[in-house]
Amino acid sequence: QAKEDFKKMMEEAKFNPRATFSEFAAKHAKDSRFKAIEKMKDREALFNEF
C-alpha cells in the first residue's frame, strides 16, 4: 500500500520529468506518503520506475 501511495504522490506532484530524485526528495520529504517508504534507496527505485 505504501508503494501505491508513493506513486500517487508522484502523479499528483506533476514534477519536471528532468527533475532529479534529490530535488523531488527535498520538496516532498515532509509528506507522510514519502516517509511511508522507509529506505531512501527504495524511494529512489520507485522514483526511477516512474
Rank of each mutant, 00 (worst) to 15 (best):
M9G: 02
E38T: 14
E23A: 08
K39H: 11
F6Q: 02
A13L: 06
K41D: 15
E38R: 10
A26C: 15
L46F: 10
A2K: 15
F21Y: 10
K14D: 15
F50A: 04
E44T: 02
D42V: 07
F50R: 06
M9D: 03
N16G: 14
Q1F: 06
E49F: 06
E11I: 10
A26N: 09
K35L: 14
A45D: 15
A25I: 09
N16T: 12
K41G: 13
K7V: 09
A13H: 07
R18P: 15
A13V: 10
F47T: 04
M10N: 02
E23Y: 01
D42R: 01
K27Q: 15
A19D: 15
S32L: 09
D42Y: 01
E23F: 00
R43E: 00
E12V: 04
Q1E: 10
M40C: 04
A19I: 15
A19N: 11
M9K: 00
F21W: 10
F24P: 02
A26D: 13
E23K: 01
K7N: 11
F21T: 04
F24N: 06
S22Y: 06
E49V: 07
F15S: 13
K7A: 04
R18W: 10
K41T: 15
K27D: 13
E11H: 10
F50P: 00
A19T: 15
S32T: 14
Q1K: 10
D5R: 05
T20C: 09
L46N: 06
S22D: 12
S32R: 13
A25M: 07
T20L: 04
N16S: 12
K35T: 14
N48V: 04
Q1A: 09
A25N: 05
A45F: 10
A26Q: 11
F21A: 03
N16L: 08
R18D: 15
A2T: 09
S22H: 09
T20D: 12
A36G: 12
A45I: 09
E38L: 07
E44L: 05
E11S: 08
K39D: 09
K41F: 05
A13D: 14
R43N: 00
T20M: 07
A29I: 05
I37H: 01
K3F: 10
A29N: 09
K14C: 10
K27M: 14
K41W: 04
D5C: 02
S22R: 11
A45P: 02
K14N: 12
T20K: 09
K14S: 14
N16D: 15
A26H: 10
L46K: 05
F24D: 05
A36H: 04
K30S: 14
K7H: 08
S32I: 09
D42A: 03
F47D: 06
K35V: 12
F50H: 04
E49N: 13
T20F: 01
P17F: 09
F34N: 00
D42L: 02
I37N: 03
K8A: 10
E38K: 14
D5T: 04
R18I: 13
K39M: 12
F15R: 06
K35M: 14
A25G: 03
F21R: 02
D42T: 07
T20V: 05
K41A: 10
E23H: 03
H28V: 15
E4W: 03
K3W: 06
K27V: 11
R18L: 13
E44I: 11
K35Y: 06
A2H: 15
S32V: 11
D42M: 06
P17W: 08
N48Y: 07
T20P: 11
F21C: 02
T20S: 13
E38G: 11
E4D: 05
F34T: 01
K41E: 15
A26S: 11
F34I: 03
T20I: 08
F47M: 04
K14G: 14
F47W: 13
F50Q: 08
K14A: 14
E11N: 09
A26E: 13
D31A: 00
E23L: 01
F6H: 02
P17G: 10
F21N: 05
E49A: 10
R43Q: 03
P17T: 12
A45G: 10
M40W: 05
K39L: 09
R18H: 10
E11A: 10
K8V: 06
E44R: 05
